[in-house]
Design a protein around this nucleic acid. Structure first.
Lengths: 215, 215
DNA sequence: TCGTAGACTGATTGATCAGTCAATGATGAT
DNA sequence: ATCATCATTGACTGATCAATCAGTCTACGA
């Protein structure tokens, strides 16, 4: 009785193929932007025939949405992989800064794709839902950290506004990284310094001394 | 001798026509995004024939670049109009917050166009140059304000990092305004509160009490 | 060995769009 | 009144691309 074997192997194969197509889509989006993507490009990048894209994803829209989902999932996985439950709030925030500003899930290629989808957000409810949910989850993890710090050294500010400000700083620094001519490590170092300056202003004890500059 | 008269009147007419076309382009970009813009749409929006667009702007690319330039100019004009040389640094920063977060040059329609161009920044050197220059000019006006506050009450931080953080917060809040479901005044009020919380953390004396919530 | 399911191919089709161009109209100079 | 200039028009062309579909290939079960 090898029926379930075959079925699961087939399902796995299909899943792998779909993943190779979404990854190819992300690569092409980074190179040509959302408007410049053609199914022929994606097929070539994935090393398969044209029709296969339509076979696995009925339309181009669905492929792009799947690519966005893959991007979100990739970010979530990296986020989870780097979070250590034994760390205190300070260390967790340092880890978040290192993840968001200069890691391999937030390099130029990935950020170009994020901004490509961002630009369509106001017209595409599906994209908006993804970003809205990700933003919600982000704040849900950020606010407890800020709140924990506020217990140790209460700032004269609403901790939700402090968390919202940090989230905005991350988003803004992502965008600005696209504008700068030299997309180098120096820019990311400045970006991390801005975040630490921000946190030090509210929580001087927890972020007073320069701890780990690089992971 | 009415030659210069005619010439200047003609030039003015052409300038008006060009402006009506760039404004129409901005409207269409806000509605359909950069990839969705067609020359037929722009012509219809401007109330003229198809060929006229090609006549005044040789290519679609040039039209879009002119639209970006018009957008930048509009923002600069609003910025200049709102700046009062007699204000102190605190009042100037308050004015900047009101301009950037909830005014008529940063409503949904305009921000959608900004993000549309942002998304192409990594592939279009012309767009990148515009943003780079605007960002430079922005920091050049922001840093002296922060520096002036730092003279009165020196924070334990590099004033350039404080200015860079504020700039990033503005950019980030713009993007997030596109994601939120209710693009209402409440979101902008929260955005302004985040900025004031930020500035209060560094300069409690200058931003300690709630001054003018609305202009 | 044969049959079948479904992954896979790429030529074809129909739609869309940027850019062209020959013709038209309006305005002002002579 | 005539002419010249130039803004303006929109039908047309060629290119591009998403989606379709008729057929091929492959792996596995009977």
């Amino acid at each position: 009785m090898s029926k379930p074997d075959k079925k699961s192997r087939d399902a796995e194969k299909v899943a792998r193929r779909r993943q190779s197509l979404t990854q190819a889509a992300i690569t092409v989006i980074a190179r040509k932007g959302l408007p410049g993507v053609t199914l022929a490009d994606v097929a070539r990048q994935a090393g398969c025939g044209y029709g296969l894209v339509s076979f696995h994803f009925e339309t181009k829209d669905r492929l792009l949405l799947a690519a966005l989902d893959a991007l979100v999932e990739e970010y979530r996985a990296a986020w989870h992989a780097r979070s250590n439950p034994h760390d205190d709030a300070t260390a967790k925030l340092e880890a978040l800064i290192d993840l968001d500003l200069g890691s391999d899930v937030t390099d130029d290629r990935h950020i170009a794709v994020w901004t490509a989808f961002w630009a369509e957000t106001s017209r595409n409810a599906d994209y908006r839902a993804r970003f809205s949910e990700l933003n919600r989850a982000y704040l849900a993890r950020l606010e407890p950290l800020i709140s924990a710090l506020a217990q140790k050294e209460p700032p004269a500010a609403d901790y939700r506004l402090v968390a919202g400000g940090l989230s905005a700083i991350f988003d803004g620094l992502w965008i600005e990284s696209q504008i700068g001519d030299g997309h180098g490590e120096a820019d990311w170092a400045r970006a991390r310094a801005i975040c630490r300056t921000y946190l030090r202003a509210f929580f001087p004890k927890s972020f007073g001394t320069e701890t780990s500059q690089r992971p």
